[in-house]
Simulated scan of single mutants.
Amino acid sequence: MPLRVTFVAAARGAPLLAERFEDDRPLDQAGWDEVQQVVGGLLPLAAAELRYCSPTPRSRATGDALGYAPLAQLALRDCDMGRWRGLTLGEAMAREPDAVDAWLADPRAVPHGGESLLAFISRVGGWLDTRPGDDTGRIVAVAEPSVIRAALVYALKAPPASYWNIDVRPLSATTVTGRAGRWNLCLDGIPAQRSRT
């Protein structure tokens, strides 16, 4: 059996339209409530040999609430957005529309002075490729949705622009199997009790 890495998306810390670049706010009450509704379905992942999380307050809190006691991994941090850190996409667009357009169109662009999308995908992929584990290793990582999208683009060897076409919802679980340089998306699903929204 190949190495199995399951990414769990952190619970939300703000409404979707209020999400900010490199948002380090803690879970809001709705996020806590959602964790409580799905804990039964995601708790079995706590049996993974290795448990990690992004170094954000909401990733750590989500992992702790799910019983994972995860170890924060700096490589699983969100994309460095430079001077746009803390802004919403709408706020960045209002201030620098041409720069935002360039960033969305070119995965190598860094108009904000931070990290390019391509560098972000490569960093997250490098973390994935260096995971320890034998042929039966299981890993769980609670991460921001953006980090999971980057991991999926890397694992599937998809064009960087496909990053914008992947929707990762809070508290969803996504698994890749394989080993360094040879990853497969696994769609076996993890049953979880979801709230009705």
Results as ranks from 00 to 15, higher is better:
G86R: 14
R131I: 05
A141I: 07
A92M: 15
F120T: 05
V142A: 00
V110K: 10
L118T: 13
L87I: 13
G126E: 02
R95E: 08
A99M: 14
L87D: 13
S122P: 06
W84E: 14
S146L: 10
G90D: 11
S146Q: 10
G137Y: 06
P111A: 13
A99C: 13
F120S: 09
L104F: 05
D135T: 04
G90E: 11
P97T: 10
E144K: 00
R108E: 15
L76Q: 09
A105E: 07
R77K: 10
L117Y: 11
V100M: 12
P145A: 04
R77M: 07
W127A: 03
W103M: 04
G125I: 06
M81S: 13
E96H: 15
G133I: 01
D135I: 01
V140P: 02
L76H: 06
A72D: 07
P97N: 09
A109G: 11
E91P: 04
D135H: 05
Q73W: 04
G125P: 08
D80L: 05
D135G: 09
V140W: 03
T130G: 06
T130W: 02
P145D: 03
R77L: 04
R138C: 03
R77T: 05
S122N: 12
R77D: 12
R108T: 15
D129A: 01
G82A: 10
R95I: 02
R83E: 14
V124M: 11
S116M: 08
